[in-house]
């Protein structure tokens, strides 16, 4: 089952995207229109995923044990919270400015995900964001959105 799911997901993606592409207009092979390439890529992707699915059906279940994929609930939670933190960083950048966004992001990583002690977590977050500020804004002159504090 575990090996069956990814090709199935790919198949779903290719059907959805292929349908969108079809609506854009395919044109002909001599005069392809915008939908032509995406559509045929989707057909290829669908074919590949069906091939992968049928092959996995034929294979003995022992192979499944050798598959590397072992998802654990704890692992998932960490992965998703890291993703959420990174997304938060992106969203905050133009709202609170570079320095604040960085500090919040670092604090999130060390306090919420890594569970450092409060003082220690805040301290290394402060040091890390100050260092990043000096490196990127002061030394490399990268332009970041200004926050409400003016940096």
């Amino acid at each position: 089952m575990r090996r069956f799911a990814p090709p199935a997901a790919l198949l779903a993606v290719s059907i959805l995207m292929g349908w969108f592409a079809h609506r854009l207009g395919l044109g002909s092979i001599n005069r392809p229109e915008p939908g032509f390439f995406p559509f045929w890529i989707c057909v290829g992707l669908a074919a590949t995923s069906i091939f992968l699915m049928t092959r996995d059906l034929r294979q003995s279940p022992e192979d499944e044990a050798t598959s590397q994929a072992v998802f654990t609930l704890a692992g998932y939670r960490r992965v998703l919270s890291v993703m959420a933190g990174t997304a938060l960083f992106g969203l905050l950048l133009e709202v609170s400015g570079f320095l604040a966004a960085t500090f919040i992001f670092m604090a999130f990583c060390w306090l919420v995900i890594d569970r450092q002690s409060l003082l220690r977590g805040l301290l290394i977050s402060a040091v890390a964001s100050a260092a990043a500020f000096v490196l990127f804004v002061k030394l490399l002159n990268v332009h970041f959105p200004r926050g409400l504090l003016g940096f």
């Binding site: 960083f89 992001f105 670092m106 990583c109 890390a128 990043a132 990127f136 990268v142 970041f144």
Partner: peptide, 17 residues
């Protein structure tokens, strides 16, 4: 454990800039 948040931060800055 000290490295990974910095890696994420650098990645984020890189993607943004």
């Amino acid at each position: 454990r000290y490295l990974w948040p910095m890696i994420l931060l650098f990645c984020g800055i890189g993607a943004y800039s």
